[in-house]
Nucleic acid binder design. Structure first.
Lengths: 230, 230
DNA sequence: AAGTGGTCTAGACCACATA
DNA sequence: ATGTGGTCTAGACCACTTC
């Protein structure tokens, strides 16, 4: 264990145990320098990591303080569907319904994807059962045009991941009742509760793709773990 | 703008523009030292920030490389309900239904909260309309017992936030149909699609609280923004 | 074997917030 | 006005990994 790591873990332990509470001041850098008999840069690096972990805040002239935990942020896992399903030990499948260029589409208006766009619709399968319905728009001015039969066998999400690096993404998650198409395609009761994940993806300010995935409420849930400093 | 900030933004710009693609090697530290005419620590700090941002990876002897973007992680905002609602310009309200000590409860089994626990049920209001239903267990062996009337006026979430710092949390998000209690209390159609957020919170390995919040699907959705490199 | 990034030292100057 | 953290220098040694 390095020295800066020891300093960091010493302080982290005092915070996690409750000996230091939110708002408390931790020792000044020069005090830690004396205490550990090291250079100031070493102390500073240890404290920097605690800042990065969200455990402390530092203020010039005032010192460093234990941060208030922020309950409202969590790391949400939105795994690649194929990976997720195969990790469960089930067979993953993809079935293409629609793949055509569109100039007008209800989602073009709301998604910010410019026309003309490639519209793709299909269903993800887990263990032979329909698992999620997907509707996607791909910006044709930004993405290199795939071969006509690309999405017959490969889900567009994985293809894009390997061909178009993204730089920004935005997610929206909500509950919706199953509409008619969903009811038929996923074999649900009418108006069954579904989890809908919408994702916008950009690359250097240019919209790349918009996707809406809808999961039956009883077949999928999102789990997020969070540790302030984990 | 500091020097390390300039180095960082120069490289970040080359990555975001696509000039440097995932897997590409970025200049060695000593090359950047020559290029910018600065100390190695300055270059190192700039690269460290890019690592922290998830934009690059560094390997001894090999160099530093542009990281593969990871689509599967996003920062999920789960704002404090009172703050969220007031930020919308609506009046926030809390109405307590139940507040009692329980030794047996269906959620005690699944939540990991040890008996005896404080069971709290109530409804959050936005602009006079019911906005979310909440069911919560609080571990009485870990949390200082609140006054009997504490939760008459203050939602337990905000009270806990200010009285019991947490160290770990886990979220689960799914879509559920509205049950009978929900239908009545939130004035919904039967079986309306609802977004259900469950949150477990621990402090130093000890369970603090478990809460299940249920939102009508048409009144709330979660939005998550993510940039690989913040 | 050689060269990389990781860690560390012992200084320095400065901007800034607070007292 | 003072003292803090923020930035920076010009070195050094080391562990690791790939060549």
């Amino acid at each position: 264990m390095t020295l800066q790591e020891r300093i960091r873990s010493d302080i982290e332990e005092r915070i996690r145990s409750g000996a230091l509470r939110p708002g408390d001041r931790i020792p000044f850098e020069h005090e830690l320098v004396t205490q550990y008999g090291c250079a100031r840069a070493t102390v500073s690096k240890a404290l920097e990591r605690l800042v990065h972990a969200g455990l402390i805040e530092r203020r010039r002239k005032a010192g460093s303080f234990v941060a208030q935990p922020k309950v409202h942020a969590a790391v949400l896992e939105v795994p690649d569907l194929a990976q997720l399903i195969e990790a469960r030990g089930e067979a993953y499948g993809w079935e293409l319904d629609t793949c055509r260029v569109v100039n007008r589409d209800p989602d073009i208006e709301v998604s910010g994807i410019p026309a003309p766009a490639l519209l793709i619709e299909g269903v993800h399968f887990a263990g032979g059962q329909p698992f999620a319905m997907e509707r996607r728009l791909i910006a044709l001015d930004t993405v290199p045009v795939p071969r006509a039969d690309t999405f017959e066998t490969e889900a567009p999400g994985s293809w894009l991941l390997h061909h178009v690096p993204w730089t920004d993404a935005r997610h929206r998650i909500r509950a919706v009742p199953a509409g008619r198409a969903l009811t038929q395609r996923l074999k649900l009761e009418p108006h069954a509760a579904c989890l809908q994940v919408e994702r916008w993806t950009w690359r250097t300010g240019r919209a790349v793709t918009f996707v809406r995935q809808t999961f039956p409420g009883d077949r999928y849930d999102l789990v997020a773990e969070f540790t302030p400093g984990g």
